[in-house]
Amino acid sequence: MAARPGSVTFVAVLTYIIGILNVIGGVILLIARDQVAGQNGAIGGITAAAIISILLGVIVIIVARGLLRGSPGARVVVTVVMIIDILNGILLLFTNQVGSGIGQILWSLLVIILLYTRRANGFFTGR
């Protein structure tokens, strides 16, 4: 059984942070959507981005624990969620939430890259 690499622990911590930030950001965006939509008239896109952020955040928080145990299923779920999160970040770019969108995209890419390093592959396939 392979020892858990530091990169996997780091990814699990990042994953928890991403999940929490997605939930908080989604709630804030949902609450403030009227003010934001008043500026650009994109309430539908803003509402969709907020709901997606909240749902993805909850999923990521639930699955992050599996990463620490070396669950290959958790790695796949987190990868899929991070890809969806990247797409949601792109949606944020089109609703004038550029800073949030870029941050979401970069964090998600970092998680995906770290989940598939050579040592991380050994850890997840050794289970």
Results as ranks from 00 to 15, higher is better:
residue 48 A to H: 10
residue 29 L to H: 04
residue 118 R to I: 11
residue 88 N to R: 07
residue 80 V to D: 08
residue 27 V to Q: 14
residue 86 I to D: 10
residue 40 N to G: 11
residue 74 A to D: 02
residue 110 L to W: 03
residue 24 I to V: 15
residue 109 L to F: 02
residue 41 G to K: 14
residue 117 T to H: 04
residue 69 R to F: 05
residue 24 I to D: 03
residue 48 A to N: 09
residue 73 G to F: 00
residue 95 T to V: 12
residue 63 V to A: 07
residue 108 S to D: 13
residue 58 V to A: 08
residue 41 G to F: 07
residue 69 R to A: 11
residue 19 G to P: 10
residue 46 I to M: 07
residue 108 S to N: 11
residue 42 A to H: 06
residue 88 N to A: 10
residue 112 I to S: 05
residue 64 A to R: 02
residue 110 L to V: 10
residue 31 I to P: 03
residue 76 V to A: 15
residue 93 L to G: 14
residue 81 V to I: 15
residue 66 G to F: 00
residue 54 I to G: 05
residue 58 V to C: 09
residue 42 A to M: 11
residue 22 N to T: 03
residue 24 I to G: 06
residue 23 V to Y: 02
residue 41 G to N: 15
residue 110 L to Q: 00
residue 49 A to K: 00
residue 28 I to Q: 14
residue 113 I to G: 13
residue 21 L to A: 14
residue 103 G to M: 00
residue 54 I to M: 11
residue 52 I to Y: 01
residue 119 R to K: 09
residue 85 D to T: 15
residue 98 V to P: 10
residue 37 A to E: 03
residue 24 I to R: 04
residue 72 P to K: 12
residue 87 L to F: 09
residue 102 I to L: 14
residue 81 V to F: 10
residue 22 N to E: 04
residue 112 I to L: 00
residue 119 R to H: 05
residue 60 V to W: 02
residue 57 G to I: 01
residue 44 G to N: 06
residue 38 G to M: 03
residue 78 V to I: 15
residue 20 I to K: 01
residue 71 S to Y: 00
residue 62 I to R: 11
residue 99 G to S: 02
residue 56 L to V: 09
residue 17 I to V: 15
residue 32 A to S: 15
residue 72 P to C: 08
residue 91 L to G: 07
residue 119 R to G: 02
residue 99 G to L: 01
residue 22 N to W: 01
residue 103 G to P: 02
residue 35 Q to G: 13
residue 69 R to E: 13
residue 59 I to R: 11
residue 86 I to W: 10
residue 46 I to G: 03
residue 25 G to C: 07
residue 106 L to W: 01
